[in-house]
Write a protein that binds this DNA or RNA. Structure first.
Length: 954
DNA sequence: ACCGCCGGGTGCC
DNA sequence: ACCGCCGGGTGCC
């Protein structure tokens, strides 16, 4: 569906992604994003057309500026209408109707992509010339020419370098002056990127110390990253490709000019290799750069500190980064003075374990009398939920006046102590809630809810606004357009919304894959000074608090992509809160714009946005678009402009295009590899990696079984090959390969061959169902990390289609819904219906090998492993080992001999909840004698981001 | 639009 | 005059 975007660019926008508004064009298309760029690259010619009706619209264009042509089939005056919009999405006018009649035919049938450039700018207030260029597949050229001819128009041929060069002058989005485009290979692209980042390191050498709340000293390259990130967040620089020219803000790629400055991109991409400390750097950023380059005002246990770094703001490196900010005037110290403080305490929560003390404080100039103790937060703490904290015990009333933001507001601090603390608790729990509220004078509670309400109201008002604006303006739906007065009012409303409480947003939202959730919590614990009281809320689990007011008061809210996605569309509280910053860990996982999680992420409101990713460009340039969308870099949040200005030129080998892409990434990205150097020295000194490859010879019996299955598998696959049905039977093919790999581990891991490799066609519905269920079970229960082809992430609520392909249920349902009866399987193009989806019934808990010890038997691989483990233990009884397998059932088998040999071990696999995972990791890391020395680790659950350091290195 | 088009007013030079 | 011409009203799709 979105493949059509380039032809009806208005349909693809934030509005489309966020609000899920039905697009104006109701047509659907099979084409994918890729095809746009790779196949429609022939220029059919150009034509001088006319834009009319300028005086009815506010959108303006400059000389040489690109415009978008958008079909308006629903236009009541002319169903052939073609609307013209500028880069910000403001309508400029319409294509004259006679020409529109010709274009509509071409555009509706995708015979050509029509791009417009305004060569002269506004010469009168009624009409305007536009140079149209037609691009498309070769086989459609004739049809386009004849259609134009039928309407009395003749395309000007584009031949030779002269016209190409003139096209380039209009914005350089077309072909380069070379007639033959050079297609860069993936490899060349990657090299170009790597070279780019190498060059970058030379001018990214400035450092910044972390705030004192950060305990772990930063390595040099981390200080450099911190400086860079801080300066990006405090930047008032124009976004890439924007320049200020004679009082106007000007986009050099599209030639779009605007009177007001486009918003700076506050954030970017931290693309360091794994292991360089992206997490620590991010934690340091959160603590070190709150507003105006000041540290996050955290409290310190014992009340000894008042967030000291802010008192030395002039000396703090953060200030250098912040100095470009307009309103950069560090608040004088006296605003920090504590006067007329008033502490109120209330034990509020009834939960046996969770006494709450509200400590509030008033300002000198406030009515000091009326502060009423109220229950601040009704968070019902599930004792299972590991609530992160870096402190264990705290006194009842300690409250620090902290410099919170430019507004010097009052800060109400609501904190809580626990009555019965277990000093030894491995999971210290704590609830510290800081309320920011201006007028808490009368009743804390009522003012709070009033303020929260007004904030919420403002928020939804903004949404309504976006729905209401006309189509042209809706193209710019980031809610921050600078162009039209309508958008300007939206913008001011946003400002107001967050300013109702005269507070800038406080919390940072971190979104990460489930597998690294504990890692984040551990790292907060590990890297913060012990006495720092950070309000970190884990937004996870069934009892998570969904109160916007509560979340707004946190310093950090940590959640997963799955939680975010599952709340998306249900009026999620995460979308209501205005975040100070949103951090996407493993941010490349939003690279599929059709995936729900991508849409959910784009819908978040934040001042600053960061993408953490070891591999920001996984496959190609295409991956970058979603990142730019997330960062809200104008004008690329609208796919049309990204395609036209960056992606298509790059894919066609246009040097200018690649240069532009590089310039873009250069500004927004920091990337170091393990081999990178900081100030001439390697940034990382890891012990040398040693790989020992031990080949295990199968026993005779195992080998026979293996060969048998191999022959059978070969037979089945070659039959599919002969029939040309390999794709259709991919599940079977996968099954065969998985079976062979399982056999290499242990024969008991696979059942009889006939069970899974069922015959393909003709069976009763019941048989079909049976077969599909067994397939999905095989795909899922093997422990292989199977991806959903729609969202490219691990399967969530897996379902299997009648064509035997497995997807996340929400993903495939969305596909079906968008295509209705025409829905086809994304993998094999077979027709699919939502009624035919079969859900995964769950693992049949058949005889786990461990359950039947009597029947347990070993295998060659098990023996080999045990030999190694025993040898290691005899050399060093405390040595710790990780045993990794893709197959959780194999881990089951391994438990038996491990127990037999009296190994103490832990286990981490995908079935374990967060708490269990955390316990498994911490147990393994326990250095005391008798602690586990082996961890059984499933590759899927532990493959990404698990921080399993042990010993000195930590 | 410093146009084109429409339709009413008008009618030798 | 069932014309031509004049000049005011008007104007995207």
């Amino acid at each position: 569906m979105r493949g059509l975007g380039s032809r009806r660019f208005g349909g693809v926008s934030h509005a489309d992604l966020q609000e899920e508004e039905p697009s104006q064009s109701s047509s659907t298309s099979e084409s994918t994003h890729d095809q746009d760029a790779e196949e429609e690259n022939r220029c059919f010619g150009t034509f001088q057309g006319t834009i009319v009706g300028l005086r009815y619209y506010t959108g303006t264009v400059n000389r040489g500026e690109m415009v978008a042509l958008v079909r308006q089939p629903q236009n009541p005056y002319d169903r052939n209408a073609v609307m013209v919009a500028n880069v910000y999405g403001s309508q400029v006018g319409h294509i004259k109707k006679e020409l529109a009649a010709a274009l509509a035919f071409i555009m509706d049938r995708n015979l050509a992509r029509v791009e417009g450039v305004v060569p002269y700018g506004k010469t009168n207030s009624f009409t305007m010339t536009v140079t149209l260029t037609f691009w498309g597949r070769e086989e459609n050229q004739e049809a386009v020419h004849s259609q134009m001819k039928n309407h009395g128009y003749k395309l000007n041929a584009v031949k030779g370098s002269s016209s190409a060069a003139s096209w380039d002058r209009y914005g350089g989005a077309g072909s380069s002056s070379e007639i033959c485009p050079v297609i860069l290979t993936q490899e060349e692209l990657k090299n170009a990127f790597d070279k780019l980042f190498d060059d970058l390191l030379e001018d990214r050498t400035r450092e910044m110390e972390a705030a004192e709340a950060v305990r772990t000293p930063l390595l040099l390259h981390q200080k450099q990253a911190l400086y860079w990130m801080t300066s990006r967040e405090n930047s008032s620089d124009l976004p890439p490709f924007w320049e200020q020219r004679s009082g106007l803000y000007f986009n050099v790629l599209t030639n779009f000019g605007a009177r007001e400055s486009p918003e700076s991109v506050l954030g970017g991409i931290l693309a360091d290799d794994m292991g360089l400390g992206k997490t620590l750097t991010t934690i340091a950023l959160i603590l070190s750069n709150f507003h105006n380059g000041k540290p996050l005002p955290v409290k310190y246990e014992g009340g000894a500190s008042e967030s000291r770094p802010s008192t030395s703001s002039t000396a703090h490196p953060a200030q250098k980064g912040a100095s470009r900010r307009k309103e950069d005037s560090p608040k004088p110290l006296q605003t920090l003075k504590r006067s007329n403080k008033e502490y109120v305490q209330t034990a509020a929560l009834e939960e046996e374990d969770d006494d709450v003390v509200i400590v509030s404080e008033t300002h000198a100039d406030q009515r000091p009398t009326a502060s009423q103790p109220k229950r601040a937060s009704r968070r019902k703490e599930d004792s299972q939920k590991p609530l992160q904290s870096s402190t264990l015990k705290r006194s009842h009333k300690e409250s620090d006046r902290t410099a919170a933001s430019e507004d010097d507001d009052d800060v109400v601090v609501v904190s809580e102590t626990r009555a019965d603390q277990k000093p030894t608790a491995s999971q210290p729990k704590r609830q510290t809630v800081k309320l920011h509220d201006v007028d808490f004078g009368s009743s804390l509670d009522s003012s709070r809810s009033a303020s929260a309400k007004s904030r919420m109201k403002k928020g939804s008002g903004q949404t309504v606004k976006l729905h209401d604006v006309d189509f042209g303006s809706a193209l710019d739906s980031s809610g921050s357009s600078l162009d039209s007065s309508k958008s300007a009012s939206t913008k001011s409303q946003v400002k107001k919304g967050s300013g109702t409480s005269k507070k800038s947003p406080r919390p940072t939202l971190i979104i990460c894959p489930l597998s690294v959730l504990t890692n984040w919590m551990d790292q907060f614990e590990q890297h913060l000074r012990e006495d720092v009281q950070l309000n970190l809320y884990l937004f996870y689990g069934p009892d998570r608090c969904r109160q916007a007011s509560f979340l707004s008061e946190q310093d950090v809210v940590l959640t997963t992509y799955n939680v975010l996605t599952s709340e998306y569309g249900k009026n999620s509280v995460l979308q209501k809160v205005l975040w100070l910053r949103v951090v996407l860990d493993e941010g490349h996982i939003i690279r599929n714009p059709d995936a729900l999680q991508s849409k959910a992420v784009l819908s978040l409101n934040a001042e600053r946005r960061w993408i953490l990713s070891g591999t920001p460009i996984q496959n190609s340039v295409k991956d970058v678009w979603m990142l730019m969308c997330f960062l809200r870099l104008k004008p690329f949040a609208v796919r049309e402009w990204w395609m036209r200005v960056i992606q298509r030129p790059v894919m066609m080998g246009n040097k200018e295009g690649l240069k532009n892409l590089q310039a873009l990434l250069k500004v927004l990205t920091m990337r170091r590899t393990k081999l990178s150097k900081a100030n001439g020295r390697p940034i990382l000194q890891l012990p040398e990696k040693k790989v020992f490859l031990q080949k295990v010879v199968l026993s005779k019996e195992e080998r026979e079984r293996y060969e048998l299955e191999k022959a059978e598998g070969r037979r089945i696959i070659s039959r599919y090959m002969a029939d040309g049905t390999v794709l259709r039977n991919y599940a079977d093919v996968l099954a065969i390969l998985v079976r062979l790999r399982l056999l290499c581990c242990h024969c008991d891991l696979v059942g009889k061959l006939t069970e899974t490799a069922g015959t393909a066609d003709s069976s009763s519905p019941a048989e079909l169902r049976e077969r599909l269920i067994s397939k999905i079970r095989l795909v899922l229960s093997s422990g292989v990390d199977e991806e959903c082809a729609v969202c490219l992430d691990s399967l969530r609520q897996p379902v299997i289609t009648h064509c035997a392909h497995v997807f996340c249920k929400p993903c495939i349902c969305e596909v079906i819904q968008s295509k209705q009866l025409a829905a086809k399987c994304p993998l094999c193009r077979a027709n699919i219906k939502s009624t035919e989806l079969l859900e995964y019934p769950g693992d049949e808990e058949d005889s786990r090998p461990t359950d039947r010890k009597d029947q347990w038997r070993s295998s060659s691989k098990v023996e080999a492993l045990m030999t190694v483990l025993l040898k290691l233990r005899s050399e060093d009884p405390t040595i710790k080992s990780l045993v990794v397998s893709q197959f959780t059932k194999f881990l089951n088998i391994l438990e038996v001999p491990l127990r037999e040999s009296k190994f103490s071990f832990t286990r981490l696999d995908g079935t374990m909840n967060q708490k269990a995972r955390a316990r498994a990791v911490s147990e393994l890391q326990d250095p005391s004698p008798g602690s586990p020395t082996v961890m059984l680790l499933s590759l899927k659950a532990g493959g990404v981001g698990l921080n399993l350091t042990y010993g000195a290195g930590a």
